[in-house]
């Protein structure tokens, strides 16, 4: 059952920011995540602020530098089928297409996908876990098949988004409007590790609205890929996966973005792998080496050591797909 709350429909971003600065206010984009959280009592809401009337958050357009601006309210389905995105930033199109199910992609937005709450079953369930302000992370001693092998401490969620890893790999930025004005930050800096604050996933302050995602211009010789491994064919989050955004010049990797998904509380960039790839020709040997390096330092829990070979396999396969 949904709790009772006030429903607010602002017309402008400024009004939305004001409404969202109030205590207990929650932004409502597509609602696919928000309504589930409210119904399941994951958190409460005093007021729910609809973003759907905000024209500034809509549409996809080219930027002056040849990049792309995607309004936060753009649905995952629109991102997945946009011909320009598929051509210039394929990892993002593939990530959006790999998320959830057709119905959810038609309703869920890109902004909401980045700001969604984690899917950890203790966080979502009837458990007073650390992320909800409780004492312990139940995953440590409990059922942790789907939990983190990197970046956990005090809380072991994995970041649920299939668009976040591609966006980090593509070095995308987001525009955020809040009570203190406008700021732009790399998507990589949007997310918060539990060691910094285990009760939230993003740096957004009360009242801040993510208004758009900005993609840099496509790289010369750019290639991209998103590989997601899941337990069933649809309607399932990543057990592990990888987003690749490479550029190849004269047969050699000129730049590389390599970001894992489903393994850490944030999209998990692996700079060592990016460094390894640059300057080399992408072949089977390099792919294997890079895959090995990608999972180096993983710290599996009692029930998720499979993630090490699984992610290794996914990285190798994804790199070979671009070779």
């Amino acid at each position: 059952m949904l709790p009772s709350f006030r429903y607010v429909r602002p017309r402008t971003v400024a009004e939305a920011v004001k409404a969202l600065a109030a205590e207990g206010a929650r932004a409502h984009a597509g609602g696919t995540d928000l309504l589930g959280c409210l119904r399941d009592g994951v958190f409460d809401a005093k007021s729910v602020v609809s973003l759907s009337g905000l024209a500034d958050l809509k549409g996809i357009s080219a930027t002056k530098d040849g990049g792309l601006r995607i309004g936060a309210l753009t649905t995952l389905a629109e991102v997945a089928r946009h011909a320009g995105i598929a051509k210039g930033w394929p990892a993002l199109a593939q990530g959006a297409a790999a998320a959830a199910s057709p119905q959810l992609r038609n309703q869920g937005t890109l902004g909401g996908n980045l700001c969604q709450r984690p899917r950890c079953w203790y966080f979502r369930g009837d458990f007073d876990c650390a992320r909800k302000g409780g004492e312990i992370c139940y995953a440590v001693e409990g059922e942790n098949t789907y939990h983190a092998v990197f970046g956990g401490s005090g809380c072991y969620i994995v970041h649920p988004s299939d668009t976040a890893s591609p966006l980090v790999a593509l070095r995308a930025t987001v525009k955020v409007v809040g009570p203190k004005g406008v700021r732009t930050l790399p998507v990589e800096k949007l997310f918060v590790l539990p060691e910094v604050d285990h009760t939230r996933e993003t740096v957004l302050a009360p009242g801040e609205v993510l208004t758009e995602v900005l993609l840099p211009p496509p790289l010369e010789g750019g290639k991209g890929h998103y590989r997601k491994v899941r337990s069933r064919g649809a309607w399932d989050f990543a057990l592990g996966g990888v987003a690749l955004a490479l550029s190849v010049k004269d047969g050699k990797v000129a730049s590389a973005g390599v970001v894992l998904s489903g393994v850490a509380p944030t999209p998990w960039r692996v700079p060592e792998v990016e460094k390894l790839l640059v300057g080399k020709a992408l072949d089977a040997k390099l792919a294997a080496e890079a895959a090995e390096l990608a999972v180096k330092g993983a710290e599996p829990m009692s029930g998720n050591d499979y993630k090490v070979p699984l992610v290794k396999g996914a990285v190798e396969e994804a790199l070979l797909a671009l070779a």
Binding site: W121, G125, T145
Partner: peptide, 23 residues
Amino acid sequence: VLDRQTGKMVNANWHDYKIPTAL
């Protein structure tokens, strides 16, 4: 899936309890 610490079912919903999809 039952949580060994509490005996509670952690996947008592359509998403975490995985029925096969058309795919």
